[in-house]
């Protein structure tokens, strides 16, 4: 089981901030493909991958990164701190 976290407008579009699921996706990008088919909100949130950033176990990664034995994957828009 893997924890999936959503932040900012991804969380709003999907309607939840966190979900748990079983996946055999080898990469973050493959996981996104699985997630896109879960609901209309998911599809909308993941419509434009250029606006999606991801972290695996709280480390920022590229979308082609392997999932390995990840326990937590987070998806969010480009960050706007400061």
């Amino acid at each position: 089981m893997i924890d999936i976290l959503y932040f900012a407008w991804l969380r709003e579009r999907i309607g939840i901030g966190r979900e748990r699921l079983e996946t055999s996706a080898p990469t973050v990008a493959a996981l996104i493909e699985e997630l896109q088919s879960r609901s209309g909100g998911h599809a909308l949130a993941f419509a434009d991958l250029s606006t999606i950033r991801a972290a695996v176990d709280q480390d920022l990664v590229e979308l082609d990164a392997p999932l390995g034995n990840a326990r937590e994957v987070a998806f969010f828009p480009p960050m706007t701190g400061g």
Partner: peptide, 14 residues
């Protein structure tokens, strides 16, 4: 520090 925390620290402003 400012450049990096603007776009590499996970904050989102609304």
């Amino acid at each position: 520090l400012m450049d990096y925390l603007k776009s590499r620290a996970p904050f989102w402003k609304k």
